[in-house]
Design a binder for these strands. Structure first.
Lengths: 242, 242
DNA sequence: CCAAAAGTGTTCAGGATACACCCATGA
DNA sequence: TCATGGGTGTATCCTGAACACTTTTGG
């Protein structure tokens, strides 16, 4: 990171991904001093004095995971003066950033990525891991609380905006979209009614292509017309996908 | 404010009030050095190292305006390294807080109060003013941008949660509630349909009392059953008021 | 008795839900 | 030819929108 570091403010990013059936969150390995057992935390870092926080979050994410051009929005500020509890956490911060300040305020970000082969290659290079959201165990600091806040945001955004397409591959099937809603919101959706609803959403482009190599009737592939959506969105009312 | 001040983080609070027909935002006077002409800003201050930010916001609001026990939630972080532009602003900050740091990150809060006689008495003691949201002129720093963010939040909260009652007096009429929605969202609502919708909302208590001293048919007064709502809210689905 | 806002019901169109069978492909 | 998930239509219910007149009070 460049130039002067602000010793009391950090950014942490909750990155969600979807592999077609389950929701994942991206964690990075934290080197522990004592025993060698690995522990995981959210990607994050102290901020530079010369960047706004959106930029800090973007740069941090790229530095730690190689991800860029991903969806990113501010989530919440966590500021409890005692949010860094353990001696171990304190020592890790000192060793990593040379900072001994007792109190660090973290501004958290909410991010979504399409998990495809290139993303898997990139994220495997760093010491990162895609963890199933249902099976989170130990995460460092108060990062579990932050992830829960991210999940809330995911649910409300899924219902208010066409954010789902940030999690799906460019070309996707209706079933994948439905699986995403079902997994994230924890609900069952009637497939026929879901398709009917999608017919009224004007920014889904049906492609000529179909799935291949599946041993059942291959599904048609679709694409989200993001350009069209961004243009119309200002003028028109809100389009709800679900 | 007590103890150590963090020189790079502040809180600013957007307080909305409703006088029965128009939406207001609370501003405090800023003493200018040069000419004596008053300028207004949002209530806010630098933070103490010993408080979480919710507490800082609460205390700041009480210190500057006398308001307490009001609705308060985190709004957004404004962090542009050049958000403090003018020399005048810089000098004001140095004179007020003794801080010369170039960059201040502000964590903003969204707040709602019921404007009644006692609130008017309290807020008139400080150098504060309730400004009509439609008629905002000069406000200091980037506070206009912050107020606009607050307005967005107000609109989405009004549609998602029963937050309207934080802006109305304890006992209110249906018409006041409708006026609030119309003013904040900038829409017209059919009164009959509005009343029908309210009948399905289980936490409105119709009182025996009526308006007095109006030279037309007096309206029945209602109260929001906040206790009941808070209890049921967890178990049940979301109640949408509008 | 007049002015002003309160309060009240019905009709209609569009959206949400529930539900069962045939189709295309790989193995 | 079988197993697997893809894709389709209809009937019913519910919700939201449009719309006009009578009632109660103060002056």
């Amino acid at each position: 990171m460049n130039a002067i570091t602000n010793p009391s403010v950090s950014v942490d990013i909750v990155v969600f991904g979807f592999d077609g059936s389950t929701l994942k969150v991206l964690l990075v390995e934290r080197q522990l001093m004592d025993d060698g057992s690995p522990e995981y935390k959210l990607p994050g870092s102290m901020i530079s004095e010369e960047e706004d926080l959106d930029t800090s979050a973007k740069n941090t994410l790229q530095a730690l995971t190689g991800l860029k051009n991903v969806y990113l929005e501010q989530l919440h500020v966590f500021s409890n003066p005692h949010r860094i509890k353990s001696e171990e956490d304190r020592r890790w911060i000192e060793a990593t950033y040379g900072i001994t300040s007792k109190r660090i305020i973290t501004v958290t970000y909410f991010s979504l990525v399409k998990i495809d082969q290139s993303v898997l290659r990139i994220t495997r290079q760093g010491k990162t891991m895609w963890c199933n959201v249902q099976e989170l165990k130990r995460v460092s600091f108060d990062h579990k609380e932050i992830i829960l806040k991210g999940l809330e945001r995911l649910c409300s955004n899924l219902q208010a905006t066409p954010i789902a397409f940030e999690l799906l591959p460019k070309k996707f099937t209706i079933r994948q979209l439905q699986n995403l809603y079902e997994a994230a919101l924890g609900i069952d959706i009637d497939n026929r009614n879901f398709r009917k609803r999608l017919q009224k959403f004007p920014f889904l482009i049906q492609l000529e292509e179909k799935e291949t190599k599946v041993n059942h009737k291959p599904a048609l592939l679709y694409q989200f017309d993001k350009q069209g959506y961004l243009q119309e969105q200002k003028k028109l009312k809100r389009f709800r996908l679900f």
